[in-house]
Design a protein around this nucleic acid. Sequence first.
DNA 1: GCCGTTTTCGGCCCGACTGTTTTCAGTCG
Length: 576
Amino acid sequence: MNNTDVSNLLTTIADLMDIKGENFFKIRAYRLAAQAIHDSPEDISILVEEHRLKDLAGIGDAIAKKITEFVKTGRLTYFERLSEEIPLQILSLLQIPGLGPKKVATLFRVLNIDTIESLKQACIEGKLRDIDGFGEITERNILRGIQLLERTSGRSLLYHAYNNGQHYLQYIRECSKVIQADLAGSLRRMKETIGDIDIIVASEDPDTIMDHFINYPKIKQILVQGKTKTSVLLIDSIQVDLRVVPIQSYGAALQYFTGSKEHNVTVRGLAVRQGFKLNEYGLFEKNTDKFLSGRTEQDIYNNLGLQFIPPEIRENRGEIEAAKTKTLPRLLEEKDVKGDLHIHSTYSDGSNSISDMVEACAKRGYEYVGITDHSQSLKIARGLDGEAIQAKKEEIKRLNETAPLHVFCGTECDIKSDGTLDYPNDVLGLFDYVGIGIHTGFNMTKDEATERIIQGMKHPSVTFLAHPTCRMIGHREGFDLDMDQIFETAVDANTALEINSFPDRLDLNDIQVKRGKELGVRFIIGTDAHAKEHLEYMKFGVATARRGWLEKEDVINTVDLTTIEEFFKKGRKENG
DNA sequence: GCCGTTTTCGGCCCGACTGTTTTCAGTCG
């Protein structure tokens, strides 16, 4: 029983109450309590034991009593009664974009629908359109939402798979019979979504490895168990495949199982044309089957006359040709990043104060940080008005007298539907730099949305465009934009484009980044952190940049403090 | 359900957007 278990239970209760139609504020109380438990650095069982639950903001008598019962007995009577009224499986319907608790409740009441499958069938049969409050368009939108979900389901966000993979890998490396172990597959390539986690182990004792592997505590089910390959399903519903190979084949296996498939097909074709054969056991002479290499990936690539190709760009998008001519890019690394320029604080919708965020950034070794809270019209995120901006500026000024790194006062200013910005020019002038982004009004045609964004980018005060397409992986497609026009504007107007590192954004994506670079665009990588823990997401932004072939020089927040200060000033002068 | 108080009850971020309605409900962020 840990904090996550309790937090998840409270969230589930809130979801059930939502469908039941309980009081909005009561439901919110459960969500806030779930968040408080999730964010608490202290172990829930200790808080229960020492009767200190109510020390957490958002937990009062009623919820404290329920948590205590759950932690002590492993059960919660209140929850059991609730789940008798509202079947738990119904919660899966809430994942469908455009479907909220009210409609889910109606669907259950009127048509007894409690699974995505039965809802899909009902949509196809046109049964929804006659329900009060529903219509043909709603029916079509729900079906479209289900299809979007189906396309991304079975795949996890990179962030989710990464954490699971790293933990599992660490556990495997604890086994003394492991000579070497690494992640492979799309996770090693840092793709934005991951089908399953692949782990490769070099060992002379596969039996011991397999025994160790299946004793990992987070396994829900063992799917396949063999001598060299075993697959399990984790509690988090991610599949993990383990392959054990002898050390002389380790590099070959790693190369083979890292993929991508398209990359491997081309590399193997190249091998064949040179009189070789490449498989997961090694590189061989085609006629004699003589073993040439396989211990490391480096050996294999070099034997084929190629530079070592970093996993992130093994997508058959020109990397093999570049490796042949020794013109691979020197990819950006996380340590090149000198500061995070997209961060929220409690001034808007962040959960940590500016000084907390700054302290956390200092620990990461940054030279500077920019606090970019939302602008005035985004009420839900407590966007800042003029008065709040002044207060924030003063706080940052004070902070800069003692802080171990430089703090910039920025904004993430909304681009309104007509392409104008959410602050007048004199207010924009108050900031050290200006990021712009869209948070409302997503229903636009390609031309309208492109024009709206371009208008924003051309504004002389603007430094960068945040999460350009506004996609949310698995939830929203994002704007269909004329990307080349956006890229050209970025170059002409000297506006950087963001690679947003938030796990379900990764926006721009790898392909767009690569195209942008080809057209001369410069980028910033921001985390969009709304809490200290989110600063970690930088590695996913960097991974996306690497997948887009970016080098240090392509990314603005790799330069030192003096240079970035000049960049902010120059941008304003040149433009305005 | 939590919180704070001028303490036991009233307030709790709300505007944009969509589709359904013909004046509003539901969803999203």
